[in-house]
Design a protein around this nucleic acid. Structure first.
Lengths: 386, 386
DNA sequence: GACTTTTATGCAACCGATTGCAACATGAAG
DNA sequence: CTTCATGTTGCAATCGGTTGCATAAAAGTC
């Protein structure tokens, strides 16, 4: 391109100044300078399969096939092609390839927030699995806004991702923004914050069971009035945890008390606020146990209560969810639910790639439920008999 | 594709069974069924600019220009094109576009690990900034291995990212694997774990100064023997922190003692190990202050020492680095250095996009140094006069 | 009214890999 | 010696936008 431009301006100037020797000489010199500079600076031209073909005196078709080890190409030819590619410094052009083959080897990922401990583990797992299968990840965050989630989905759609992995934003009520994917048959896998949809798989943990186990554990420790710090109920993650809590109470014949449910966004501040809320209650109405739907809220609630002189677990036992690093730092150490975000990510990707390879259909596997284990630590041990 | 395949099997079967009417009839019926099913299931054909062009009786060129609001296209025409695009359900084909224009609107990101608190903030900042400028992020992790970093860089290169953002792996000594980028003039921006390279920008904090401030603070609290928990010295992040530590000692006329340097990978276990190391020292040889190059190691060192009966800060004062959430949970709260990963990510992306837009050259801006502030908490307050 | 400038649109050649089908060589079978 | 299977390779069309250059129409200038 650059060279073409140069050549044309060269002929132009030549015809224009053909009777002016002085100027012609000057311009010629300038031109030479310019061209030299251009060539020096210019990245050497991109090597294509055509260059390799010419170099080996074979067709581009053969090169294309040879490069991806197509079985109909002679092994010897294949080796020669590979060698030439390396020698010439060939790099494949993903676009040309994707344009023609309509496959992108790219998976779109939409998460509510990138900067959460759990989510970054999930992403690490995803990246690991995807990279093993030679897929790339395009990652975006919705910042918990349905509108941004929608915009992100649209970009992914335009970028022709082979599949989509999504954990829904807080305020996403319906998934109409994903319809284009379903319409085009692009597989969608939900993880963590899932949505029940007949045509796609969900990868999640058994939140109900884990919450049930936590609550049961607190009850067995002698708690009678357990408070629950819950998250947004639009997301089944949190509604399932609440359900597990309720069911455990019921099975232990403890009446459910609406006043002991505290819904928030479960961040640090919300944890402190919950503590203030507890302190405002009459001492005899206070809970003797707290089950928080995440560790952050639990820990910051504990910190606030401790400074107010509440003893943990003697006065109030605590249990969280996630097994966040802070749960091992707070004193007393926090009882929590451990589950591997890394594993969630890995499984979600493997499942998606399975669909893409046609190994499994999105319709048959509807949900994949991963293990989650109760980790008992001092924060919940009222009768110290671990 | 599907149709072509069908057609071929059709002719095959025809020649094969041409004298067997019964079977032929049966197969024809099957074929019809199959084709019908295929057509029903098939996603409706993709809409292209040519479809829009035909629909409006104008040329594809005009549509192409109209869609990206090229000023030479009449406003009225532009509107009509936009309307038609929406009506027909057009989605642009990024590949075709990238193939021709050689721009991808994609930035490659290589980080050592995705699942770290700091890194996920950085990514959040990057995603935010990139998304504002309509760029997408392809994110990979090197898992601290030079080999994987190299492979990732190569993929990015093939994927024709417009620019590269990279934080180097622990064991990366040279950046020969990035040469293709430099050779092609693709801008590279280092962040956090940087490398001094004449043709690219580095975004980082002033590790030297921050470490100096931390050490100075500990000295002012009366510490005489400050231990330093450091990281891999191949990375300037850690070597600069060590340098800041050393210089502060020197400025306060405290002799530098090689034995008080403890190098590790700074994870939880390394923190505990450092504590064990301290406990093994003769009491009069023990440090009276610890400056750790990250919070994780500091906190886990503290936990271990506390169980051994060491008082913090009375016996040993502590300071960390990062302002990790755990620093606010440990008791006593950890003095640390606060700096915004989010901001680092944002700045790195903005700078890269600046280069891409030709606003700034990679060569002029060599390093961007961001603020980092000492956050004093109880862990370092020997003379309680905050 | 002739001529230049501005504005708006279209032509056609790309970009680089993929793929259905044809074609060729070789050797085996009949 | 023909026929056919098998293994290799190439032709040429295709994917869907982009862009330099030409052109046509409208507006402005003298």
């Amino acid at each position: 391109m650059q060279q073409a431009g140069t050549a044309s301006s060269h002929s132009e100037y030549k015809s224009f100044f053909k009777n002016c020797n002085r100027l012609q000489f000057f311009f010629q010199k300038m031109l030479l300078l310019f061209v030299t500079a251009t060539i020096t600076m210019a990245e050497q031209k991109e090597i294509t399969i055509y260059d390799i073909a010419k170099h080996l005196n074979i067709s581009a078709t053969t090169v294309s096939r040879g490069l991806k080890n197509h079985p109909t190409i002679n092994k010897n030819t294949r080796r020669k092609i590979a060698d030439a590619a390396k020698e010439l410094g060939y790099r494949s052009n993903t676009f040309a390839s994707s344009l023609r083959s309509k496959r992108t080897q790219t998976i779109g990922v939409i998460v509510p927030r990138l900067n959460s401990n759990f989510m970054s583990s999930v992403l690490a797992g995803m990246e690991d699995a995807a990279s093993r299968e030679h897929y790339n990840l395009i990652i975006t965050q919705s910042l918990e806004k349905r509108e941004k989630e929608k915009a992100n989905a649209h970009t992914m759609y335009n970028k022709r991702v082979d599949g989509l992995l999504i954990s829904l934003a807080y305020d996403t009520e319906n998934i109409s923004h994903l319809h284009p994917f379903f319409a085009k048959g692009i597989p969608v896998v939900f993880f963590d914050r899932t949505y029940n949809h007949s045509e796609s798989t969900s990868v999640l943990i058994d939140n109900f069971k884990a919450a049930y186990e936590v609550t049961k554990h607190l009850l067995e420790q002698g708690c009678k009035r357990i408070m629950h710090l819950g998250g947004n109920m639009l997301r089944d993650v949190y509604s399932e945890r609440l359900r597990g809590y309720k069911t455990a109470l019921q099975d232990h014949k403890i009446p459910f008390d609406e006043k002991l449910i505290y819904i928030s966004n479960l961040n640090e501040e919300a944890g402190s606020d919950a503590a203030k809320h507890i302190l405002k209650m009459k001492p005899n109405k206070r809970p003797d146990g707290v089950f928080s739907a995440n560790d952050t809220a639990a820990v910051h609630c504990m910190i606030h209560l401790k400074t107010a002189g509440i003893r943990i677990p003697e006065d109030i036992a605590f249990a969280g969810f996630n097994n966040d690093p802070i749960s091992k730092v707070i004193e007393p150490n926090l009882t929590t639910v451990n589950y591997s975000g890394y594993h969630v990510g890995e499984v979600a990707v493997m499942n998606l790639i399975g669909h893409l390879k046609g190994l499994s259909s999105t319709k048959t596997t509807n949900r994949i439920v991963l293990r989650a284990d109760l980790v008992v630590r001092e924060s919940s041990l009222k009768n110290k008999s671990l």
